[in-house]
Amino acid sequence: MTPLAASAVAALASGPAAVPLASSPEYTLPFVGPGTYLIFGIVLLPVYAMVAAWFIGDPSDRFANLLGLGYLAGLTTVLWGSLFVATIIIGVVFF
């Protein structure tokens, strides 16, 4: 561990890990961070297994599989998109 990291950790939390327990997010970042790895790398494994099974197993149908994927992606977008619109409206009207 570099002295830099050591001092950062010492300043934050005297815990042994090099992960900052208390840090604020970096807002210029693209959508990448430890949480991204945790969620997309580990937690969503069953979902990956599911999608893989769709394509690999038998019987399989390309269109249906893509449709399923489309639903997954589309619904996520719609959910957050509509929430975003709602928050913007609330923000404009009330804040």
Partner: peptide
């Protein structure tokens, strides 16, 4: 918010 020192907190972030 860009000038936030916490970005230096881990070697990982440093790398990035």
């Amino acid at each position: 918010s860009t000038d936030d020192e916490s970005m230096y907190a881990t070697p990982d972030e440093e790398h990035r």
